[in-house]
Amino acid sequence: MNKTWNNKAWFLVLPVLLLVAFSAIIPLMTVVNYSMQDTFGNNQFFWAGTDWFTDVLHSDRFWNALARNLIFSFVILAIEIPLGIFVALNMPKKGIGVPVCLVLMALPLLIPWNVVGTIWQVFGRVDIGLLGHYLRILGVDYNYTQDPVDAWATVIVMDVWHWTSLVVLLCYAGLVSIPDAYYQAAKIDGASRWSVFRYIQLPKMKRVLLIAVLLRFMDSFMIYTEPFVVTGGGPGNSTTFLSIDLVKMAVGQFDLGPAAAMSIIYFLIILLLSWVFYTVMTSQDAKG
């Protein structure tokens, strides 16, 4: 049988193609363009080859920011995922408590990023902030603008406050889809609380957990607004994550070439790590 070739079909793809081109391909190629050239204004460009990439990959500044970013992502995943599961397990399954809890959980997610940052920036201030003020009264030497550890703690607690809800809601959705008969059967089989979690609840939550881990990883790896508002990347460079560093380089110093090269490396890292997460977490399905 011969296939009918009808080139008119391409016209149907065209709108999407144009849209994707404008929203993704053209900007990305612009960045590629910048990353390979040097410019001093006046629209004068000089070929730079892979120089910027070599520069970025040899700069401590980049590796430090990357390390901070990885640590940050790891820490918030290690807190938000177990905490989210724990909260979801303890949420009511029926009654008036359900809508109340759901609304409370959704609230932080509805607040714009920069507002979250502002809230915590004020909240943590030692002169007028509730948190900062009372920590001082309790005798804790807390000051996120001076002490790197305090700055880190503030940024992490803020992220946990902002995003654990997402993990909770996803897990809760997985949990309520489990029919009662499973719990009844587990009781009859004499399963312990841990077995119920391990063999009934966790398997049912697996898919949503995968989504939660991926979303939280990508988001936290790209985090910009909140730490920028709270600490501005400081004190020193202690909370300067990749995105903050990138903006400093591109907008602050106007080093478009290195910034473009860094963007591309940054993009590839996120892509690679997301792929690794996904592969590792879905590979267990394939076994057995």
Binding site: P179, A181, Q184, A185, Y199, I200, P203
Partner: peptide, 14 residues
């Protein structure tokens, strides 16, 4: 007591 339900209850991962 043992009970068998209307819809199959199995432990997926086992």
């Amino acid at each position: 007591i043992a009970q068998v339900f209307q819809f199959p209850v199995i432990y997926d991962t086992m």
